[in-house]
């Protein structure tokens, strides 16, 4: 019998499992950073974590609250300037995986982190693009981690900040984006992957204790389920232990939880 765990822990563990050992990963702050560090501390000790503040090969002992925390610089293999990180390393084609969060996404995994409502007179002004447009285009592939709700999984984005598969099908290829785009969206309910031809996200794995009705009820479009839809393995005792230790160390260092409030890229 495994210990009880939260849906947030399931999401973080499922996201961490997606990162393969040895991958060079450009990490956004918040949920992506938590998941990437959990991966590094479990099955992917040789994953290379790259932060847009210029830290390459960062191995922080606690989770950073901001993308440029001193911990990242102190534990990195090298620290380069901001122009260099975007020019030589991201645009240069050296990033295997871009790990992003989002305020909103649509069925083709396009991301909005800019505004809710019209751009000129927004209802909610979100932080904006950060590194996301170029991470989502230049990284060889993209992982997205986000909590699922009708407010985040919307029928239509008010603003496309960063491209997923645009209007679907071969739209991304036709727009000549260098990377192949999102390969998985990991939520607190399930894992979605783009359909091989339509590129529409479909549920490919459902977390324990979640049913299809719940996922449909947390998605503003009529969400599809893959023919062979798996059950996500629950977090192992080891995964939970490492995650909880990391969050406890972080809380002790920052007096906060995991900095997941701001999903910057």
């Amino acid at each position: 019998m495994s210990a009880a765990y939260t849906t947030d822990e399931m999401m973080t563990v499922a996201a961490a499992r997606m990162l393969r050992n040895g991958a060079v990963c450009f990490v956004g702050i918040g949920l992506p950073s938590t998941a990437a560090n959990l991966a590094r501390l479990t099955h992917a000790p040789d994953a290379v974590l790259v932060y847009e503040s210029g830290a390459i090969g960062a191995k922080p002992g606690v989770l950073p609250l901001s993308i440029g925390d001193g911990q990242l610089a102190e534990t990195a293999d090298t620290v380069v300037s901001t122009p260099e990180i975007f020019r030589y390393w991201l645009q240069g084609g050296r990033i295997d995986v871009g790990f992003l969060g989002a305020a909103q996404l649509d069925r083709f995994a396009n991301l909005n982190t800019t505004v809710i409502g019209p751009y000129g007179k927004p209802k909610v002004r979100l932080p904006g693009a950060g590194g996301a447009p170029e991470i989502s285009s230049s990284a060889k592939e993209v992982l997205i981690v986000v909590k699922q709700s009708k407010r985040t999984f919307v029928e239509r984005l008010d603003f496309v900040t960063s491209a997923g598969f645009l209007t679907g099908g071969d739209a991304r290829e036709r727009a000549r984006l260098p990377g192949k785009g999102p390969v998985a969206v990991i939520t607190d309910l399930c894992i979605l992957r783009p359909h091989v031809t339509t590129r529409e996200l479909e549920v490919t794995s459902i977390h324990p204790g979640v049913d299809r009705g719940t996922i449909a009820g947390h998605t503003a479009w009529e969400v599809r389920f893959a023919e062979s839809c798996d059950a996500t393995a629950p977090p192992s005792a080891q995964e939970l232990q490492v995650l909880r230790d990391l969050q406890a160390r972080t809380a002790a260092a920052h007096g906060a939880t995991d900095g997941a409030a701001a999903e910057s890229a």
């Binding site: 702050i29 002004r125 932080p127 701001a262």
Partner: peptide, 19 residues
């Protein structure tokens, strides 16, 4: 290019000016 309070949330004075 990115207007948030890192690790916390919104920049309220920035948002109030824009909104």
């Amino acid at each position: 290019s990115w207007g948030g309070n890192p690790g916390v949330g919104s920049l309220h004075r920035f948002r109030d000016a824009v909104e």
